[in-house]
């Protein structure tokens, strides 16, 4: 198994707060990993360091033995990392189709990007809203639009920060199928609060707590672990069914 992504002693401080506190994380090619942990555990900060939005205070990030620590987002993106951020980050003034085309244009000519956009929009069932202005879409539609943009850049590693938050039951089901499909060709990390969803998609789960990795194991063992239950006790973010 080849290691695709590796962090060592990764730390990020915000003033007095240490959001991520010495994370050693390894991700193999082809995995679909879930990242869970209570609010404020440092999951999003970890993601932001992986994609270059936030520079680490210390530590290192490697993608396929290529040290990307401190690189800017566009450099890391061109090394095959795509991210769907927790708060959707979109081109509100463009249409869905235009957004996806612009994303695909990084590696393609405009006409080839047009074809890829068609394909991606069809695949994600977004053809019906292709000509709508992104700023006017519902929350679920925005999440999917962002996903379409990320996928059309053809990333090797896909980072998804709470992809089903605010989605309807049907949308969650479709996202589940989609994630599994994405994972057939790409390596995926998903941050998710919904434990039912985690159970449905993941095999291996990493639990963050106070900026550290509390436990990392198979999904069933993690969900049965008493430490995990303690961490989550009384936390509203967790929804055991």
């Amino acid at each position: 198994m080849t290691v695709l992504l590796e962090t060592s002693r990764l730390i990020r401080r915000y003033g007095g707060v240490t959001a991520v506190d010495g994370v050693d994380f390894t991700l193999n090619e082809g995995e679909l990993r879930c990242l869970i942990g209570p609010n404020g555990a440092g999951k999003s900060t970890f993601f932001k360091m992986l994609c270059g939005l936030v520079p680490p205070s210390s530590g290192a990030i490697k993608i396929r033995n290529d040290d990307v620590t401190g690189m800017r987002p566009h450099e890391i993106a061109s090394r095959g990392v795509g991210i769907k951020t927790q708060v959707p980050s979109l081109f509100d003034g463009l249409t869905v189709r235009e957004s996806v085309e612009v994303a695909a244009m990084r590696r393609l000519t405009p006409s080839a990007a047009c074809d890829i956009a068609d394909e991606t929009l069809g695949h994600l069932n977004l053809k019906g809203i292709a000509n709508r202005i992104v700023g006017q879409l519902s929350h679920g539609q925005r999440q999917w639009t962002e996903l379409a943009m990320v996928l059309s850049t053809d990333p090797k590693i896909v980072l998804l920060d709470e992809p089903v938050a605010g989605m309807t039951h049907d949308e969650v089901n479709r996202t589940e199928d989609l994630l599994k499909h994405i994972n057939t060709t790409r390596t995926v990390i998903v941050v998710e609060h919904d434990m039912q969803f985690v159970k449905r998609i993941a095999t291996k789960v990493t639990v963050f707590h106070h900026g550290r990795i509390l436990i990392e194991d198979d999904v069933d063992r993690v969900l049965a672990d008493s430490r995990v239950r303690d961490v989550y006790l009384g936390k509203s973010g967790l929804r055991y069914a």
Partner: peptide, 13 residues
């Protein structure tokens, strides 16, 4: 429209 998003897609804004 959104400089951060463009960077995350791989463009040097």
């Amino acid at each position: 429209e959104n400089e951060v998003r463009a960077e995350l897609l791989g463009y040097d804004a």
